[in-house]
């Protein structure tokens, strides 16, 4: 059995007028692999993530996704209905700010169950059971199932967002600074949780972060971006332990040592 890449990215470029968002990015993402995109603010990480997840239209280049039927689909050619269906079943998107990814005025259970209802589940008891199961998997007590996310702490909201995304068993999850704004101990727990889930479910993930420690813990492979270009990519340990580009060396050496 040959394993084929889940995502094939070729020459992806996004221009904002004359300015570069990201330029000529090419890579393959394999099933079960976690790829980190690191770089300083304004380096084009989030632009790249938005283009990959079809939230932004790329100026040129292609992104091909290995559909469940085995064929590759060029994402920019999908109809809007297909694209939205893909986004709420086979994909997940974890926002930096949980309020962007959650419905803050409906209960945690409904937040987690929404995707199930969107794909046609019509049994209240089963939806609730699945939601409760997922809440406990992300270490939220099922007794909080009827509370609104407004009543949750930042870390809980982020875990709730993860549960909401994973309930349909997606194969690819995009994460934009998943630990941004969380304090260090909460960050550590979240990273631990995400690492466990990714491993157990065989998920592929693309994680955007400016925090090299997050990249070190979560990712197998990483890409370093600067001014919209990928300047270095390779296995995470290799890039962090033996950075080749001067900029990467600067980045690695500027981590605060406590």
């Amino acid at each position: 059995m040959t394993i084929e890449p889940l995502l094939k990215v070729n020459g992806l470029t996004k221009m904002y007028g004359a300015r570069i968002g990201c330029a000529d990015v090419s890579f393959d993402l394999w099933p079960g692999e976690v790829l980190a995109i690191v770089g300083e603010s304004g380096s084009g990480k989030t632009t790249l993530l938005s283009c990959l997840s079809t939230r932004l239209e790329a100026t040129s280049g292609s992104v091909e996704y290995h559909m469940r039927d085995g064929a590759y689909g060029e994402l920019s050619r999908l109809t809007e209905a297909e694209r939205r269906f893909l986004m709420r079943t086979d994909w997940g998107f974890v926002h930096q700010n949980p309020a962007d990814g959650l419905r803050m005025t409906v209960s945690a259970g409904a937040n987690v169950g929404e995707r199930l209802m969107a794909i046609g589940h019509r049994h209240y008891g089963e939806i609730r059971e699945a939601a409760s199961d997922w809440l406990s998997r992300v270490e939220i007590s099922p007794s909080r199932i009827d509370d609104q996310p407004r009543a949750f702490s930042g870390g809980m909201r982020q875990r709730l967002q993860i549960a909401r995304n994973l309930i349909t068993g997606p194969r690819l999850v995009f994460m934009d600074e998943p630990t941004g704004g969380l304090d260090v101990s909460v960050q550590a727990r979240l990273l631990d949780l995400v690492r466990g889930l990714v491993h157990d479910l065989g998920l592929s993930a693309i994680v955007v972060t400016h925090d090299l420690a997050v990249a070190r813990l979560l990712s197998h492979r990483m890409m370093v971006m600067k001014d919209g270009h990928v300047i270095e990519q390779g296995l995470t340990d290799r890039v962090l332990d033996d950075p080749r580009e001067p900029y990467t060396q600067l980045l690695v050496s500027s981590i605060l040592q406590v």
């Binding site: 419905r103 409906v106 259970g109 409904a110 169950g113 929404e114 995707r115 209802m117 969107a118 794909i119 019509r122 209240y124 939806i127 609730r128």
Partner: peptide
């Protein structure tokens, strides 16, 4: 799906 979120 959202309509059922309301009923949920």
């Amino acid at each position: 799906g959202l309509m059922h979120v309301k009923l949920y």
